[in-house]
């Protein structure tokens, strides 16, 4: 988001806040970003002029990659893309006023990764396409097929629910926290984010792989490790 060129020739400067880190162990070395320190925590910021800020897809992706680098070296509370404060003094004030909240959050996510898991039901998707591809000789035949599709769609959903309940239970045992996404649609039957200890990363991934083997009719999409985006909610 921050351009590398000289930004000091512009009039209105703002601080872009990338995240808040535990700053007790090591120093930040990701120029042009720098820390605004308060006690043992710090906000990682970059300075830019308002007119030169970028808000396109590429900037958002680069922002995400920067957070991944930070997450590798620090315990991190990631800030949402587009978090700006007026100046370093304001950043310091925010850290001072919310120190206890940030400290508690940092403790919660310390040495932990976020993993996202989405599960798709291939069966559901395939069956719903059948009636669209055929030619029908009568309306009755068409309606019967539609009814059959509907019934199999419901049954597939019920089967998937049973399976995902088991899967979720297994993965919860390996995670410290989980957040289920209640709004799933299409052929996605399950979506959840897990907060997993770094030392259990391989175990968690192997477990997902093993579960995929147990449920070949479902398609698993595991992403991560991410910084703990979903586990730092609250203003």
């Amino acid at each position: 988001m921050i351009e590398g060129s000289n930004v000091f020739d512009q009039k209105v400067l703002v601080c872009c806040v990338y995240g808040i880190v535990d700053y007790s162990a090591q120093e930040l070395k990701i120029p042009p970003l720098y820390p605004v320190v308060y006690r043992d925590i710090a906000a990682v910021v970059g300075t830019s002029c308002k007119e030169r800020l970028k808000f396109d897809r590429q900037a958002a992706i680069e922002y995400g990659h920067t957070l991944e680098v930070l997450h590798r070296d620090f315990t991190l509370i990631p800030c949402r893309f587009g978090t700006f404060l007026q100046n370093e003094h304001t950043v310091s004030r925010v850290l001072r006023e919310h120190y206890c909240v940030y400290k508690k959050k940092l403790e919660e996510v310390k040495d932990r990764h976020e993993f996202g898991l989405k599960i798709m039901s291939e069966k559901k998707a395939q069956r719903s396409n059948v009636s669209n591809e055929r030619r029908w000789e009568s309306g009755k035949e068409y309606l019967m097929q539609k009814f059959y599709d509907y019934r199999t769609h419901i049954e597939a959903g019920q089967d998937a629910k049973k399976a995902t309940d088991v899967i979720h239970g297994e993965l919860q045992r390996l995670s410290n926290m989980s957040l289920k996404d209640t709004k799933v649609n299409g052929n996605v039957v399950f979506s959840c984010n897990y907060l997993v200890e770094k030392r259990r990363k391989s175990l968690f991934c192997s477990k997902v792989q093993a579960l995929q083997g147990m449920y070949p009719e479902l398609r698993f999409l595991l992403t991560g490790p991410w910084p703990p985006y979903n586990f730092v909610a609250g203003n």
Partner: peptide, 26 residues
């Protein structure tokens, strides 16, 4: 592509929101 979409979903919709005092116009 899926990974990029997951990344964008996170950086745009998740993460902590800090009370601020700046107006940015795009």
């Amino acid at each position: 592509n899926v990974t990029v979409l997951e990344l964008l979903d996170r950086v745009l919709n998740k993460g902590v929101v800090i009370a601020g005092d700046v107006t940015i116009s795009v």
